[in-house]
């Protein structure tokens, strides 16, 4: 149920994001979801892509610092209180969310949110118990 996310270190200067996007585009890598965390000096670009190995290879070959992180793709009901209903059981179980970001496209009538947990195994247990749907990696890469 774990999804592999690419994290890329980026200096905060003009054109860096475009360069990386061009690189992945030329390699035929399709981006499924993306988030960018930044400070005034640097940022971390996080990507879910259709071809993790290919993306990893072209990024490393071009000299980027990249790491792989296990994240979880959770289906969230698309109505007021939907996200809260996912977060509540996690909160009660004391599972910390490091960060999260939403998928652009919807798979079903539900939204898809990517979560990075401090303790991924504990989080998966809580979600299963609460009957919250977690998407398998293959589904996420091809959404």
């Amino acid at each position: 149920m774990k999804v592999q996310q690419l994290s890329i270190f980026m200096e905060n200067r003009a054109g860096r994001l475009a360069e990386i996007m061009q690189l992945l585009g030329d390699a035929g890598v399709n981006i499924r979801a993306l988030s960018l965390a930044d400070t005034s000096d640097f940022g971390i670009l996080r990507l879910i892509v259709n071809d993790v190995d290919k993306a990893l290879q072209v990024l490393r070959e071009s000299g980027h610092t990249v790491s792989l992180t296990d994240v979880v793709a959770v289906e969230v009901p698309d109505h007021p209180g939907g996200l809260a209903s996912v977060l509540n059981p996690l909160c009660q179980a004391g599972v910390n969310v490091e960060y999260m970001y939403a998928f652009v496209e919807k798979a079903t009538d539900k939204a898809v949110v990517i979560f990075r947990f401090e303790d991924i195994e504990a989080a998966l247990g809580v979600l299963a118990k609460a009957g919250i749907s977690v998407l398998p990696a293959e589904t996420v890469y091809t959404l």
């Binding site: 996310q5 971390i44 490091e98």
Partner: peptide, 15 residues
């Protein structure tokens, strides 16, 4: 220079 040995996926840890 942030090589993979010096890189964290979390902003908090990098800072």
């Amino acid at each position: 220079e942030v090589s993979e040995e010096f890189f964290f996926d979390e902003m908090k840890k990098l800072q």
